[in-house]
Design a protein around this nucleic acid. Structure first.
Lengths: 186, 186
DNA sequence: GTTAGCATGTAAGGAGTTACATGATTTT
DNA sequence: AAAATCATGTAACTCCTTACATGCTAAC
């Protein structure tokens, strides 16, 4: 997951770790958060895999001085050719790995870089996943409503409404995708 | 988390593993799911810790035959005295461990076994957690709305609305808790 | 008599978190 | 010159998942 998010962000522009984490927060919003403790090891693994590399020709030449010091604090990463390939591969996945709870938000966040057909398949996959869950809760509720205490009932109903709300949202998005050859604002 | 859920369910009645998992699903609804691969090892650990024990005096005497066979398939667990103590300890926690995303639903599901004052503190804790998050998204959105592509914007706004919705729900629950000495249906 | 669902478990591993440690740079 | 924030990193650990392995019991 983190890997996809990093590749997606670096595809837009080179960034260093600290900046990446802030962009991650701003991009994923309420859907997911990552700590430095997982970000830095991931960056290292990705560099070792050859998907990202340290960017040299950057805007670091503000003052003349630090040019000679062997190593400055910031390590700016950019995508390599392999990284771009890997990103395309991950963005093309339209399966459970793209529509489960933990993953959907990240895939969605990079939809503007995703093929329109794949977008629709992911949205539909997520929607049917949620519809199944909705039916499970509904039938469970129909069977056991009387036996539940007030709090469990509240929890079930709030959960059910959340799922219903997301289903409606997805349905609108799917509609828009279909009536829309020209979908995203740059 | 699983431990609290198991203790909470076994406090209502003795159950075996398979049954526990079904009740877990039915009780936690959309909020959380656990696999057998984590349930059974957890049961074993809890038994080793002395919080739960195999229940002997159970309704297993349907036919007379299996009484003599040393071990039947089902292993029914019940709470021990230590387990009840541990449950009370976990239910009394009103801190981040009770109001974060992954944990709140489980704590809430057992609110009818929780002290009313603790309930209010957990609800308020969760609400302020969400209010912080809401402000973070709002200000981020205010700053960067123009630069975001349509999908990221959709994600942010849907996330923001979800948070706002949960805040309203919590506010209602807190109100009800306060105006209500007699809160839960058995 | 075979498929489906009940029932229990293990081994290996994934994907993160927390807490710690360190130092540079900017703001007050 | 202190405090805040930027910036990078590691070690130990948590908690759960997937895939596998096995056998019993009920329904068709």
């Amino acid at each position: 997951m983190l890997e996809l998010a990093v590749l997606g962000l670096l595809h837009e522009s080179p960034l260093h770790g600290y900046e990446l984490r802030q962009r991650l927060k701003a991009t994923l919003g309420t859907f997911r958060a990552f700590s430095y403790g997982s970000l830095y090891p991931t960056l290292r693994r990705m560099r070792d895999s050859g998907w990202i590399a340290e960017d040299e020709g950057d805007a670091e030449v503000v003052a003349g001085a630090p040019a000679l010091t062997g190593r400055r604090g910031k390590v700016v990463y950019k995508l390599t050719a392999d990284g771009k390939e890997k990103l395309q591969e991950l963005l093309a996945e339209a399966g459970p790995s793209s529509w489960e709870d933990e993953t959907f938000g990240v895939h969605f966040a990079f939809f503007s870089q995703t093929d329109p057909e794949v977008r629709v398949r992911i949205l539909e996959g997520r929607r049917s996943r949620l519809e199944e869950r909705r039916e499970g809760v509904r039938s469970g509720l129909a069977r056991t409503r009387e036996r539940l205490d007030n709090y469990t009932l509240q929890l079930q109903e709030h959960g059910l409404e959340s799922v219903e709300r997301e289903v409606r949202w997805l349905t609108e998005l799917i509609e828009t995708e279909r009536n829309n050859s020209k979908p995203a604002r740059p």
